[in-house]
């Protein structure tokens, strides 16, 4: 018994010292080799596109181009778990998404939001209530009045049960005391398609995801669930202006595993800041209808903590968690 304890203490000591030595050695010359970014979603999706645009722009600020690795599955659970478990040496970073503050409360993953250390937020998209252009509702007030008068008659499409846009609709129902029929689709695009076909009454996906159809005059955005009006949609009122204190957004940003040494974090923060403010990256995002929303680590941490609490409460209320 005693000897086993001794061995384990010794092993721990060796491992710890290797880590410390390793981090000192690497911090001085960091980054000296390729940095790998783990993307928890499949190639071609929104998160993947942001990452690839970021990696493309980061080339100028790093000695070697970043490698983008997609680890998909479980609505982000597989990739986010992978980021938490990755070696904390600064060469393994991840594209964190709002799901890192949501999945822990669904009881499906072993990590917590605190297991990630934020480096910088790159992009954020609020939820918006959009309806078919042929529908009778011109404003949010008309829409919610109809919904209240006919409980359950308004069918709201979302991108999957437990996903961010579903929770946005649930939160709205909760705040306003309305009853909707929530229809989950396999992602935001199929939900928007169903809206265009008139099979559902509304969607709660981001303005960017319906922007094309708004320009084509097929879809109308009634309100956006953000704190302030957002660029590109300045004439659309926020939900707060209608007196509902609700702002829900999805976000994407660079995160690292918790044990990543601080000096390495600082180096990364600098590099990411330069890249995020690079004109090439900004225009790439704009072209993809994505909103540039840079936040440095401390403010990003606040967003994460706030969302963590918010989703915990909401999911408990809805009975989604376990």
């Amino acid at each position: 018994m005693k000897s086993r304890k001794l061995v384990s203490t010794l092993a721990k000591a060796i491992i710890t010292s290797t880590f410390i030595l390793g981090s000192i050695a690497s911090a001085a010359s960091y980054p000296s080799k390729q940095i790998e970014v783990i993307v928890p979603y499949s190639a071609g999706g929104g998160t993947d596109l942001v990452t690839r645009a970021f990696a493309d722009a980061a080339k100028q600020y790093l000695p070697e181009a970043m490698g983008v690795v997609n680890k998909t599955g479980g609505g982000g659970a597989v990739g986010l778990s992978e980021i938490v478990r990755a070696r904390a040496d600064g060469y393994h970073i991840g594209m964190g998404t709002v799901e890192l503050a949501m999945l822990p409360h669904l009881g499906m993953v072993t990590f917590q939001a605190e297991d990630f250390v934020p480096i910088a937020r790159l992009n954020a998209e609020p939820s918006a209530i959009s309806v078919n252009a042929d529908s009778p509702w011109q404003t949010y007030d008309e829409f919610i009045a109809h919904a209240k008068a006919n409980p359950g008659a308004i069918r709201i499409g979302n991108s999957g049960t437990g996903a961010i846009w579903h929770l946005a609709a649930e939160a709205l129902a909760d705040k306003t005391g309305t009853q909707f029929s929530h229809i989950p689709y396999d992602g935001a695009n199929p939900a928007v398609t169903a809206l265009l076909g008139g099979h559902i009454e509304a969607v709660t996906v981001s303005p960017a995801e319906v922007a094309n159809h708004v320009k084509n005059g097929k879809v109308r955005i009634l309100t956006i669930m953000s704190d302030e009006r957002i660029a590109g949609f300045e004439d659309i009122p926020t939900l707060k202006e209608s007196g509902v204190d609700l702002s829900i957004m999805t976000w994407r940003g660079i995160v690292v595993p918790k044990k990543t040494p601080e000096d390495i974090q600082m180096v990364l923060r600098d590099a990411v800041k330069q890249t995020a403010n690079d004109d090439g990256f900004k225009s790439a995002l704009a072209k993809m209808n994505l909103t540039h929303a840079y936040l440095d680590a401390p403010e990003f941490q606040k967003t994460i903590s706030r969302d963590d609490v918010f989703f915990k409460d909401l999911m408990k209320k809805l009975g989604l968690g376990s």
Partner: peptide, 10 residues
């Protein structure tokens, strides 16, 4: 979209 083209009826 990246190329500034707007898919749709127009």
């Amino acid at each position: 979209v990246l190329q500034g083209l707007q898919p749709g009826p127009m």
